Every structure is written in structure tokens, then in C-alpha cells.
Amino acid sequence: CKPMSYEEKRQLSLDINKLPGEKLGRVVHIIQSREPSLKNSNPDEIEIDFETLKPSTLRELERYVTS
């Protein structure tokens, strides 16, 4: 899986911020299912740190927000 450039992460962040509330739950689910360290975090307060997410997680999020 190809790592994301800074610009791609920035765009992904903007795209996620534009999602309606009902789609954000899926974003949280994708992150929690792929990032063991965030599995028990509160979905309402999850802070997405794009620098610490795996490339595969970032690509999955990218696919979701652009679908």
C-alpha cells in the first residue's frame, strides 16, 4: 500500500470534515477496526492523527470519502 503524501493527507482531512454526521460513524469504524491502539477510544471524541495512521487505513478512508 502506497504511503500518502502530506498533500493527500491534507485533502483527506478536508474531505472527512465535509462529510455529513451520519457518515462520520463509518469513518470512526474504519479507523477503529484497523488501528488497535484506537479500538477503545470514544467514537464521539476520536481525534484523527493522520501521521500515526497506517497507509492502509488512510487508503481505506480515502476510498470511503471519494465513493
Rank of each mutant, 00 (worst) to 15 (best):
D49R: 03
Q32F: 03
Q11M: 04
D15P: 01
R59N: 02
N42F: 01
R63H: 09
I48L: 12
K18V: 03
D15H: 10
E22D: 13
R10G: 02
P3S: 09
L38M: 11
L24I: 09
E62C: 07
E7G: 06
L53H: 04
N42P: 13
F50Q: 03
T57V: 01
N17Y: 07
E7K: 07
E8Q: 05
E47C: 10
N17Q: 09
R10T: 04
L14V: 10
P36G: 11
L14N: 12
E51S: 07
R34A: 10
D15Y: 12
V65W: 08
Y6W: 09
T52A: 12
P3Q: 05
S67Y: 10
S33F: 02
V28F: 14
R34M: 15
E47A: 14
T57R: 01
T57F: 00
I16F: 02
T57C: 02
L38E: 06
N42E: 13
N40S: 10
K23I: 13
S33E: 14
T52V: 14
P3T: 06
E60L: 05
S33C: 09
S13H: 10
Q32R: 12
F50Y: 13
P20K: 11
I31V: 11
E8F: 04
P55Y: 05
S5H: 03
E62N: 08
R26W: 09
E45K: 09
T57E: 00
P43R: 09
G25K: 15
K39M: 10
E8Y: 00
E45F: 08
I46K: 11
K23E: 15
Q32S: 05
I16D: 00
M4G: 02
L38W: 14
N40T: 11
I30A: 14
L24P: 01
E35G: 00
I30K: 00
V27L: 13
V65C: 08
E45M: 06
P36L: 05
H29T: 08
E60W: 00
T52D: 05
I48W: 07
S33Y: 10
K23A: 15
N40E: 06
K2P: 00
T57Q: 00
L61N: 06
T66G: 14
D44K: 12
K39N: 12
Q32M: 10
L24V: 08
C1E: 14
P36I: 04
P3E: 14
N17D: 12
P55T: 12
P43W: 15
E62F: 01
N40R: 11
L58M: 08
R34Y: 11
Q11K: 11
Y64I: 04
K2W: 07
S13E: 10
D49G: 01
L58V: 06
E60R: 02
S37H: 14
I48C: 06
I48V: 11
T52S: 12
L19I: 05
Y6G: 11
Q32K: 14
L61H: 07
Y64G: 06
R59D: 05
E7N: 05
E62I: 01
P43N: 12
G25E: 15
P36V: 04
R59L: 07
V27W: 01
N40W: 13
I31E: 04
R10Q: 08
S13K: 14
L12N: 00
R34T: 02
R63A: 14
L53M: 13
C1T: 08
R10V: 09
S33I: 01
K39D: 06
F50H: 03
G21K: 15
P3W: 00
E62H: 11
S41L: 15
S41P: 08
C1Y: 15
S41A: 11
S33D: 07
N17E: 08
R34F: 11
T66W: 10
P43T: 11
T57K: 00
V28W: 15
F50L: 15
S67I: 08
E62Q: 15
R34S: 10
D49I: 01
S56Y: 01
E22N: 11
E35M: 00
K23H: 15
I31L: 10
K9W: 05
D44S: 14
K9N: 03
R26A: 12
S5I: 01
S56W: 04
L14D: 13
D49L: 05
P55D: 14
S13T: 09
T52F: 04
V65F: 03
L58K: 03
T66C: 11
I31R: 02
I31S: 02
R63K: 14
S5F: 00
E51Q: 07
L12K: 00
E35K: 00
D15T: 13
H29G: 11
F50N: 08
P3R: 07
K9M: 10
I31C: 05
L58R: 03
E35T: 01
S37M: 08
L61I: 15
N40A: 12
R59K: 01
Y6Q: 14
C1L: 09
L38G: 07
R59T: 01
S33V: 03
E7W: 04
E22V: 07
T52L: 12
K2T: 04
K9E: 11
S41D: 13
K2E: 13
I46N: 14
F50T: 11
S37I: 04
L53Q: 03
S5E: 07
D15Q: 14
F50W: 08
V65S: 06
G21T: 15
V65P: 05
P20F: 09
S13I: 09
Y6K: 15
V28R: 15
L19W: 00
K2I: 01
G21E: 14
L38A: 05
L53I: 02
L24K: 15
N17V: 03
K2S: 07
I16T: 04
T57M: 00
V65T: 09
R26G: 10
E62W: 02
C1W: 09
L14C: 10
L24S: 06
T66M: 10
I46S: 12
L24C: 02
N17K: 15
L12G: 06
D44W: 04
E35A: 01
E8P: 00
T66E: 15
L12R: 00
P20H: 10
N17H: 07
E51M: 10
E47R: 10
L19Y: 03
T66R: 15
R34D: 03
E35C: 00
K18R: 12
R26E: 15
D44V: 06
I46Q: 13
P36W: 01
R34W: 04
E7A: 10
Y64N: 10
Q11N: 10
S13D: 00
E22W: 08
P3Y: 00
C1M: 05
E51C: 03
V65D: 06
D49M: 08
S37F: 11
E45T: 10
I16C: 02
L24R: 15
N17M: 04
N40Q: 09
V28P: 05
K9Y: 00
S56P: 04
R26Q: 12
I46L: 13
G25S: 15
K9D: 00
E47G: 08
T52W: 01
I48R: 06
T66H: 15
I16N: 02
E22P: 11
P55R: 01
S41V: 14
I16K: 02
S33H: 04
P55W: 01
H29F: 05
L12T: 04
N40H: 12
S5D: 06
F50V: 15
R26T: 13
L58A: 05
L53P: 03
E62R: 15
R63N: 11
E35L: 03
